[in-house]
Nucleic acid binder design. Structure first.
Length: 257
DNA sequence: AAGGTCCGCAACCGCTTCTTC
DNA sequence: AGAAGAAGCGGTTGCGGACCT
């Protein structure tokens, strides 16, 4: 009995690595004319020396119509951060919420930009001046009500120090309602009470909270970073009527325990 | 200019889930 | 019900370009 019995079918030497424009054309035109059907038969019928899996990936991540090929917008990044906080590494589910983006693209962008770049270990995002301007222009056109969300935070390292972005926000928001709450709090608008926190885990360390409290007392700055607990206290103390507002990004902060 | 290092992205790999029979 | 194949998913790898020395 010979093993050759198992190998009667001529085995095609499959190609790996980057796709050539020619291969792209073959796959694109095949799917355009015949549809996908079974992925395992696609490369055979399309005359490609690839496996079905590779074809599927190439189509989904690169050739499929409707894909955006441009860099992620601030709004998209904001959405990714929110979704990641809500669902973790569910890249494909996130992709469904971001038209024109693939799970692979979102995953790569998270690992290379959002995880360590704009976000810091302490759970805050570094806000560039350009980001701040974009953020403010969005809210200028659509002024927040007394209970709203500001989707950006400032790096806490800049807290209490001179910071262009923070100063810009102070200036730009001066005409807007003075109290803003983070998105992870649901507020009873009638009574001004926190009725629900969307995250059960501690948002920031006790040490950081103490640091903020000290800074809050000492700071002459108009803007303040508030922890969930501090926001809660502030509401209870009727701080809504003061000139304080909180800007806090919960997505990354939730990772900080 | 050349070699080394870093970083982003495309693609692969292997495991899980779904579907079909 | 369960086996087998297909599809989906997420972690990881490796190539290539940019940047640094």
């Amino acid at each position: 009995m010979g093993l050759k019995q198992f190998n009667n079918k001529p085995r095609r030497k499959l190609k790996k690595g980057l796709w050539s424009p020619d291969e792209d054309d073959k796959l694109r035109s095949y799917i355009h004319n015949h549809g996908v059907g079974c992925w395992n038969t696609v490369p055979i019928n399309a005359g490609l020396l690839r496996n079905g899996k590779s074809c599927r990936l190439r189509w989904i991540n690169y050739l499929r119509p409707g894909l955006k090929r441009e860099t992620f917008s601030l709004e998209e990044e904001e959405k990714i951060l929110r979704l990641h906080n809500k669902m973790g590494n569910k890249w494909s589910q996130m992709a469904r919420c971001l038209p024109g983006r693939t799970d692979n693209e979102i995953k790569n962008h998270w690992h290379t930009n959002l995880k360590k770049g704009r976000g810091n270990n302490d759970g805050f995002i570094t806000l560039t001046d350009a980001d701040a301007k974009k953020c403010i222009s969005t809210h200028e056109n659509n002024p927040p009500t007394s209970i709203t969300t500001i989707p950006y935070a400032c790096n806490n390292e800049s807290f209490g120090k001179t910071d262009v972005s923070l100063a810009y926000i102070d200036q730009a928001l001066s005409n807007l309602p003075k109290v803003f709450f983070a998105e992870w709090l649901t507020i009873d608008q009638t009574h001004g009470e926190v009725v629900q926190s969307n995250l059960g885990n501690p948002l920031i360390t006790r040490d950081l909270q103490e640091e903020y409290k000290t800074n809050l007392q000492n700071s002459s700055m108009q803007s303040l970073l508030l922890s969930e607990e501090m926001l809660y206290e502030s509401i209870l103390n009727g701080i809504q009527n003061s000139s304080t507002y909180g800007v806090f990004y919960p997505t990354l902060a939730s990772k900080c325990t």
